[in-house]
Write a protein that binds this DNA or RNA. Sequence first.
DNA 1: GTCCAACCTGTATC
DNA 2: AGATACAGGTTGG
Length: 304
Amino acid sequence: MEFTIGIGSPFSLEYTLESGQAFRWQNKGGWWYGIVSGGVLKVKQEGDTLRCVSSSDLIDSAFVRRYFRLDVELEKVLSSIMKDDTIALAVQKFYGLRLIRQERWECLASFLLATNSNIPRIKKMVQAVCARFGEPLQFEGTEYRAFPKPEVLAEATVSDLRACGLGYRAPFLKHVAASVEEGRVDFSELSLLDYEEAREALVEELRGEKLLLGVGPKVADCVLLYSFDKDEAFPIDIWIARQVVRSYPKLLDPGMILKLAPKRRVKIGRGDYDRISSIVRSYFGPYAGYAQQYLFMLARSGGS
DNA sequence: GTCCAACCTGTATC
DNA sequence: AGATACAGGTTGG
């Protein structure tokens, strides 16, 4: 199925797909290829139109608009987070970067794998899991693999998962897949909660046992921001922590600065995570997550 | 509540 | 060359 979409609001497909929020998009010959909703989609931006070709009728213009959140008036979001020169620079540098709306299960599983790793490796892990366990999809004479369903990963053996290069994350993935498959986590219910409640629910313990092993505050924030429309979520990783210390020392107390000082290996404990999170969320407001995404890009591009 | 070592593995750096 | 550090954190003590 082929179609084009008029954008009519700032959008940069490239910044959006290169900002580390999704791990499976690939640029080949000027087109971006992704696997979404059980099909293949290729997209190319030409000015303010989006040319799309998809393998399935389910992936239509409404789906693509929804996936890239083209309904969001980015200008309004940006003006609401423009609190200072640093964020203004980031916004100017990566103008058109948007948060996308990913599929929830894939998003949860992907960011579970992202712990203590780096983007190239995360991509490799996700790719390996899809290659080994995903349903094959044909598109333009090439085979692609869907992201495997929870029930498939729940029944995989830990050693087969380990063989995908997951390391200690292998048992976590199996456990989380089982929790989702057995309905111990219900995405629709979660989506009805507000941000704070949903985050609690994701990292929660039930009768002394963790519901989602491997899901801490950082992973929970990523999942809520990228697949649950919780725009105030502000995932804090090592890059963001350093950028906040660098550009917003006044927001933090001296003890915190010392603890996160560059050079030292930064390890953010649960208490510090929550403190920093609450400070930056009240500073940037309801769209703090957008600020986080722009600051993340700024940090990775060398910062300022 | 807090701190801390341990955790898989790929890649960079010395 | 072989060791060490570090990466989009989390767990269990």
